[in-house]
Amino acid sequence: MTDMQETVVFQRPETLEDTYTNYCPGCTHGTIHRLIAEVIDELGIRERTIGVAPVGCSVFIYNYQNVDFAVAAHGRAPAMATGIKRVQPDKVVFTYQGDGDLAAIGTNEILHAASRGENITVIFVNNATYGMTGGQMAPTTLPGQKTTSSPSGRDVEIQGWPMRVAELLAPLPGVSYSVRRSIHDPRHINNAKKAIRTAFRAQLDGMGLALVEILSACPTNWHLTPVAALEWLAKHMLPYYPVGDYKISEGLQ
């Protein structure tokens, strides 16, 4: 007779709350929340981490993460995170921001936090639309993409071009890490987690602002099924928003 041994191979991270979700079916915010929670657990920083939530669908991220949280005004999370981090540099501070929050109303705050080299981690979720208000055109909406405020499709002659944030911030000396990842399949999810981990490590090593842009699906506002939304992401978003490393400072390799 042999001794039976059970090994836990998968469980809810301590940083992830055991609760119901407000996100739509097929929304990938939940996946990203979990990746962050796993990384915080693995780095053993839960008890000294402070998150800053955006305005948008993920305003309620504080319900899902078991860390201290502040909810910023729309776009102001990097400024608020600056205030939190500057008075307690021993803490780990991250913002979680959508594309409307970071790339439209909050461009001033993210650009200057990056320029100053604020020692914070930024998780930037790009789903090419304003989710919470019901699918309007975002700064990241693709050319030709139909939304409730670009009903004929985004016309770049009138509405301009979508913004590539990871590429935009990478050249700033204050930025230690700027990469784009996606979560439309398991391989990309694993790579996204590695990038989130690196972005937190950059902060722990005091290297400056670290940003991970993550391409994310919004089936509800894209009017697609969850599976079709992931396929749409891969087919339409990846060509304009290539997954890649735009800045990796020495020492983070």
């Binding site: 910023a72 400024a79 600056t82 500057r86």
Partner: peptide, 12 residues
């Protein structure tokens, strides 16, 4: 930016 930095530090 300034007032939101104040907001952050006040929360701390």
């Amino acid at each position: 930016g300034a007032i939101n930095m104040v907001y952050g530090a006040a929360c701390a």
